[in-house]
Design a protein around this nucleic acid. Sequence first.
DNA 1: AATGAATGAGCCTTCATTCAT
DNA 2: GATGAATGAAGGCTCATTCAT
Lengths: 224, 224, 224, 224
Amino acid sequence: MLEAAGREFAEKGFECARVRGICDRACANVAAVNYHFGDKEKLYVAAVLEAHRCGFEFTTEHEAITGAGGMPEDRLRAFIRHFLSRVLAVHEPDDWRHLLIAREMLHPTEASDILIREAIRPRFEQLLGILREFCPEADERRLWALAFSVIGQCLHYKMARPMAKRLIGDEGIEALDLDYLSGHITTFCLAALGRIPPLGEMGESRDVAGGQDGAGVREPVAGG
Amino acid sequence: MLEAAGREFAEKGFECARVRGICDRACANVAAVNYHFGDKEKLYVAAVLEAHRCGFEFTTEHEAITGAGGMPEDRLRAFIRHFLSRVLAVHEPDDWRHLLIAREMLHPTEASDILIREAIRPRFEQLLGILREFCPEADERRLWALAFSVIGQCLHYKMARPMAKRLIGDEGIEALDLDYLSGHITTFCLAALGRIPPLGEMGESRDVAGGQDGAGVREPVAGG
Amino acid sequence: MLEAAGREFAEKGFECARVRGICDRACANVAAVNYHFGDKEKLYVAAVLEAHRCGFEFTTEHEAITGAGGMPEDRLRAFIRHFLSRVLAVHEPDDWRHLLIAREMLHPTEASDILIREAIRPRFEQLLGILREFCPEADERRLWALAFSVIGQCLHYKMARPMAKRLIGDEGIEALDLDYLSGHITTFCLAALGRIPPLGEMGESRDVAGGQDGAGVREPVAGG
Amino acid sequence: MLEAAGREFAEKGFECARVRGICDRACANVAAVNYHFGDKEKLYVAAVLEAHRCGFEFTTEHEAITGAGGMPEDRLRAFIRHFLSRVLAVHEPDDWRHLLIAREMLHPTEASDILIREAIRPRFEQLLGILREFCPEADERRLWALAFSVIGQCLHYKMARPMAKRLIGDEGIEALDLDYLSGHITTFCLAALGRIPPLGEMGESRDVAGGQDGAGVREPVAGG
DNA sequence: AATGAATGAGCCTTCATTCAT
DNA sequence: GATGAATGAAGGCTCATTCAT
């Protein structure tokens, strides 16, 4: 039931989702949602919170990977890759959870409160923590801007994907896969942060000693 | 009328916008939209194209500013500032145009065709041109990724603003104003591209000799 | 519900019938028709088919009466009387069924397909069969014309009744009741077919030895 | 304008006719009908009366043809042929006048009053007069029934034509053209009235000495 | 005089919700 | 406890009519 609701809400949004559509997916009666959840809106909140549990698992898992015990570069690389993997997963057919959360980011509802508190803010703080290691004396505002620069680059592939697809074509989009993009964004950020030579300054022959995922930080970039 | 429609569509989206709501805003009869535009969908397209005219003016103006005759750094700085100024304008009360275009980016409709062709693609190509000056030997894919890194950082403040507001508070958001953000993003990108010293490597006392807009590229960043 | 719909459709036609009107008659909600039948058109088809069931019963009953085992004269007489009884019933207050079928005859819709196949064509073929006994060597075209002559005389009292009422007055119309008309039309046809002395040639005193229904074939006609 | 209105009303009926459709046909403004006629209904009446003028001409012409100075047989034959020619003309594309009048016969409106008085009743009385010559001693009721038998046979090809087309096919309908049908109906009636040998009693070789139109009364009918 | 613009009533349909079973 | 039937509110759209020009 929550599964069905989540899919419908993720695909069509709250307003355009039809309770009949949800009940059809769940092979349940039309009255079921009102019976079990009282209300379409309450069902939506329930679905978001269901999706959030996944986010919580993600956070936990995330911390295991990007947790405090490692080089900042590695932690940032892991963060970006992990975050990006979720972003790109949105458009896989059965991943309604992240799509639903994405909708919440654009149009927060009351369901967002708990979502932010338990899933999003922890990751955000974690990213701030990583960035603070790069720029220990940066003030809060700078850290925010840096964090949004990281997040923005990743999230863009979720938010503006349909438009991007029109700009560079289906093949173009597919060429920008997880490996390539996580490598690119990590490189971009680390270069900006001065931890690796900047892009555009050196040839494609730059050392590519690698990221955990083979799409390492130092892969060749555009030559200058 | 288009004004009213644009606001309603921008606020609520196509499906949830009510033609009655539009006509109320416009102090017109419910039948007015069908009389003047045929139906709700045609009105939507008309509103998007109306919004696009602004984008077209923007492009023209843009090219004057960021046109080929200057240093790549200056052109990129101008691009980012100009683009960001449009992005941040979205949430001003009477700027429904950019919000509507943002909706189109998430869910392209038939109205997007002309929008992309005449407004978005030219800007995109322009950005690619600027980036190509930084990385003359980069392949297409790299240029795309770079462009999306630039655009993503800017667009994030439109796309995820509600969520960001919850994360860092109203005051936090207001602190990230046009001057600060355009400076930050330009710095971030130029550093990544190796045209300025990277962030995080030097003190806040770095030379800030200036951008045209006073929020110069080389303003102090996070200290190291 | 079908009752209400049938009445409304019969009275006003498909386009002018109002689903609100139907639901009012049926003391049901406006949404009832869409709930039960999908939309107005499907309801119309359902109503026509409901009306058709009566036609089907009629056909069955009809065949029992006019079936092959009898003199052609008797079979034709029975056919005419039976057909005419249905025709004249149209204007009884609660007989929407035949009126609805009459509408279908003027403006066939998709509902007509089954109607023709199961109700109208069998009767038509039956009449052709009867006529063929009178004129065994007639070609198809002649039989069609004969059949339409029979049917046309009967149907006229349904089709053009309002006009006829204005021409000969209410009393005139009422004088042309089932007994009289079935007698007249049968006489007219049989005379034309040569089975009885023609009208206009003999006095009103002609033998009236009777039809099964008392309004026999050979009743006195116009004197000569 | 009346031309346009007449066509639209004839094709679609009063309710389904659209004043915009009428004005489009007439290349006039939407407000024209209300300006010139006050009202859709008043325009309808005007169109019917316009159509009636043709009926009046018809009556005049008719009387010239079927007028008192001739054999009753010839006058009846002329009446049937003339009437039938109008009936069959209904389905020609530009003959909206008769179609409009036909609509009035099914659903008389206030426009019918003058129509009946000046166009229909005279013809009806004329037919009664002809029939009275065949049956001089028949009472009024008998004459009415006879008249309706004549009219009904003719009118059937207007009223039930769509249904007939489905029963006997397009080719069947086309085989029943004016010559054939006027011959058939005249024969049928004259035989019923005893003025010619009945149908079904003699072979196809019967003498066909002719009607004015070559589709004479005595053409071969189905043999017996 | 004649028209383009605008209106309000009304129609069919959809949908979340409720009710009786 | 759970469901199929039914409801009323609301939405988009059409159309004859009116109004200001």
